[in-house]
Structures are given as C-alpha cells and as structure tokens.
C-alpha cells in the first residue's frame, strides 16, 4: 500500500492488435494537478477509462485509491472518484437538478449538497430545465458539478475545457485548483498544452500510446532543450557590417537588419553580452523562450522520428 491515489505499473491496452496504450507507468499523488497531454488518439481517454475500470488492461496493474479497480467488488471505490467524460452527454429527459440527485444517490451522498454545487458552477437558474435544452457550456458545467459530488479524492476530467469560452474556462480552473488544495488528485487531459501553463503541477505527455514525458514544466523544458531564440533589431538606418555578428555565425536574417539566432539556454547570456558590445548597437532585443507548444512539439517529433 502506498499513499498514491493512482498507480499504474506497466500498463498496456490493446484493442485487437492495435495498441492504445503501451507499457505506461504513472503515479498520481494527493493534491497534485496533473495535465495529461497528447493529441487525439494518443491514449489519454484510454488511460482515464482504465483508471475508472471501464476497460480492462491487457497487461499491467492499476491501483486506484488503494484497490484494484478492475475487480468487481471495487465498484464502491468509485464513490470517491469524479469523472467528466469527453463531450459529456446526459439522459435527455431529466432536468439538471434531477440528474445531480440521481448521481448523488448512486454515490450515496446527501442530495441536499447539490444546491451548493449548482451555485458553484453557476447553473442554478437552469437547474430545472431538461438537459436536452442545455448548451455545450451548460452541459459541461453540469458535468463538472456531477464530478464534484461528494468531494471526490480523485477527479478525472477528460478534455474538460474544449469548446468553452475563456471566462468559463477560468471558472473551471479555479474550481479545479480549489479541489487540489482540498487534497484531491486532479488529472485533466487536454490536447492544448498552452492553456495549462500555470494550472498544473505536473505534465504527462502521451504520444501514440507511449508516455514520452512526465515532470514539471521546468523539468520538461530542461529535458526538451528547445532552443531559446534571440532576435536583434538594428534599426532601419543602421549600417551593420555582417562581420559585426562574427560573419553571422548562426545568425539568420529574418527582416531588414533584423537577425535571429537559436541558442541553448546556457549560452543565452553570453550571446546577449556580445550583442551589447557590437559597434552597431541593436535598437531592440527580444528573447523568446521556448513556448509550451515548442516543448510539446519536441516530444511528439522525437517519437515520430524514432
């Protein structure tokens, strides 16, 4: 027994001969916000469904909240798991409030708590409408409210913010942060890494069923060694001899008197210092660290190249 909320050891899942997830090890700890990133078909949903016991592993062992979730008796564990499926759908004939009551009863939680959940996701006004009349944003809010029933210790959110407007997205992340502070493990999958920048403690990158990276954003940056780009603008009236930039070694013209170089992170300062000692002083210097998308692309490309 460990304190881990979820532990996956050597998980492989095949559909027929097609592997959806191959030999994945993953440990999720309480209070952690984990971003599971990868493009469509990378195995994100498969991993989440495996953690829920909706599908069985081909090989490997999964423990969720201290028990093997695939066992029949383990269904009670799911009372402590909140799940928001990708493109959540509800039985159409019920109202939002009725649905929350239904799910709360299944989880054996107090139905009276649902009102505060509805308030939390801002769905009080629409609570007595049938879910078939809900917009995508409202369905997603109800989905989140449903996942939050009974203060779950593990939240599994499958692309929760796809198709949401920025304000709602913020609300979502605020609620998720509060849950993590409360000690819950929050795993959320996304195919856009950029929006998760300050919203996750750890990032797990999946590519074609393989876990290709797992760590904090800083870890990932260090691992990826994506180049930082320095761009120097010498102004239009500058008469910059090419020799000033050491015969432009590594520098590449990207505009009139604008030059750019890609360098490794440790070399950055040396280059900037050199720029400042040139006879022709640059009018402007721009330092662009690798974006999350660059890092993401790095991990995906590396696998594609192998």
């Amino acid at each position: 027994m460990s304190t881990a909320t979820v532990s996956l050891r050597g998980i492989t899942k095949r559909y027929g001969n097609r592997p959806a997830v191959t030999d994945v090890d993953l440990v999720l700890l309480p209070g952690e916000r984990i971003a599971l990133v990868g493009h469509n078909g990378a195995g994100k949903s498969t991993l989440i469904k495996l953690m829920l016991g909706l599908i069985r592993t081909s090989t490997g062992q999964i423990d969720v909240l201290g028990a093997d979730i695939t066992r029949h008796k383990a269904s009670a564990i799911r009372a402590d798991i909140g799940y928001l499926p990708e493109n959540v759908v509800f039985p159409p004939a019920m109202t939002g409030r009725e649905l929350l009551s239904f799910y709360a009863r299944l989880k054996r939680r107090d139905v009276a708590q649902n009102q505060s959940l509805l308030e939390r996701v801002g769905l009080v006004d629409a609570a007595d409408q049938r879910t078939s009349t809900y917009s995508k944003g409202m369905r997603q809010r109800l989905g989140l409210a449903q996942a939050l029933i009974g203060r779950p210790r593990l939240l599994l959110l499958d692309e929760p913010t796809t198709g949401l407007d920025p304000a709602l997205r913020r609300t979502f992340y605020d609620i998720i942060d509060a849950c993590a502070q409360d000690g819950a493990t929050v795993l959320l999958s996304s195919h856009a890494l950029a929006e998760l920048e300050s919203r996750s403690d750890r990032i797990v990158v999946m590519n074609r069923g393989l876990k290709v990276a797992d760590g904090t954003l800083a870890d990932l940056r260090a691992l990826a060694r994506c180049p930082t780009r320095i761009r120097a603008d010498f102004g239009t009236d500058s008469t910059l001899p090419a020799e000033s930039l050491g015969n432009r070694a590594g520098w590449r013209a990207v505009g009139v008197n604008i030059y750019e170089i890609a360098c490794a992170e440790p070399d950055k300062m040396a280059l900037v210092r050199r720029l400042m000692t040139l006879p022709a002083q640059p009018r402007d210097i721009e330092i662009v660290p690798p974006t999350l998308d660059d890092i993401y692309a790095h991990f995906l490309d590396r696998k594609a190249a192998e």
Partner: peptide, 14 residues
C-alpha cells in the same frame, strides 16, 4: 451509443 453509459458506470455501480 449516446455515451451516457460510461458516466453511469463511472459511479459506484456494478
């Protein structure tokens, strides 16, 4: 087909 089963089975339901 509608996708409501996955959510139902994600609850403590055998």
């Amino acid at each position: 087909e509608r996708g409501t089963m996955a959510l139902l089975l994600a609850h403590p339901v055998r």
